[in-house]
């Protein structure tokens, strides 16, 4: 069942399970009312794939993301990420695991106003123990990968929403994570920028062999995912793989051949 985070090609990647939820349940108590958000969920996610979890708000998809990424613990069941049972790790070890293996992209871009794009990306790298030059090299590379090479000296106030989200992606990407989690990455953006973002995430999965898990209620993203899980009321209703990218998106054709 466990998988090794090895470099993979797109072809054999579909067989590599990198992230698993096994009988995960989660409920919240508010006052005297206990509401179950996740009902005994089991699912496997594969490397080199962009998995999209979609569903209406309140269906539990963000909670699922929090649990799968180790930001929150499950009430029951367990999460195995890269062969590691996350419930066995303490807070310090979880932080270490996230530092080494996971990247995050949030709905709000959460960039430090004082830092330029390059520094935003370098910041987490410096905690990885990379040398200054290596951190700079990786940060530059990531920013170029998301198409921000020429704008890496600008601060968030000088960047558009789409560009800010690309900085946030570069920040997550520069760590070279095996797991990349994105929570509603496009909902603060217009359609065009949303397309760019989902395309970048998809490309990352293909070219880096990263397991990309994206949570969104945005139906426009469905066509860009390798796999779509529809959630409602804490359960997965459907699990399907769109056979082909929708026509007219304009971005599917740019997909690199990994």
């Amino acid at each position: 069942m466990s998988s090794q985070p090895l470099p993979m090609t797109a072809l054999d990647a579909t067989t590599q399970v990198s992230l698993q939820a096994i009988s995960v349940s989660k409920s919240f108590v508010s006052g005297h009312v206990q509401s179950t958000v996740l009902h005994d969920l089991t699912l496997n996610m594969c490397a080199s794939e962009l998995t999209l979890i979609s569903g209406p708000s309140g269906c539990g998809k963000s909670t699922l993301l929090a649990i799968l990424s180790g930001l929150q613990g499950a009430d029951q069941g367990k999460v195995i990420a890269l062969g590691q049972d996350l419930s066995l790790l303490n807070l310090r070890a979880l932080e270490r695991f996230r530092l080494l293996h996971t990247g995050f992209v949030f709905q709000g871009f959460n960039l430090f106003p004082a830092l330029n794009a390059l520094e935003q990306v370098e910041l987490p790298l410096s905690y990885l123990g990379l040398s200054k030059t290596e951190a700079r090299r990786r940060a530059t590379e990531s920013l170029e990968e998301v198409g921000l090479g020429p704008r890496m000296r600008l601060r968030p106030s000088e960047l558009s929403g789409g560009e800010k989200q690309r900085v946030a992606i570069a920040r997550a990407l520069a760590k070279r994570p095996e797991l990349l989690f994105a929570d509603e990455p496009t909902s603060a953006l217009d359609a065009a920028n949303g397309q760019i973002i989902i395309d970048i995430l998809h490309r990352i999965a293909r070219t880096h062999g990263t397991t990309v898990l994206c949570v969104s209620h945005d139906p426009r993203l469905v066509g860009h995912a390798d796999r779509v899980l529809s959630m409602e009321d804490g359960r997965i209703l459907s699990d399907h793989r769109p056979t082909s990218l929708p026509t007219g998106s304009g971005y599917g054709t740019e997909e690199p051949s990994a």
Binding site: S69, L71, R92, E95, R96, F97, R98, L99, L100, T102, G103, F104, F106, N110, L123, P124, Y127, A168, R171, A172, K175
Partner: peptide, 9 residues
């Protein structure tokens, strides 16, 4: 919080 999510202790 984002930094912490990215693993910065």
């Amino acid at each position: 919080a984002t930094l912490n999510a990215l693993g910065v202790g």
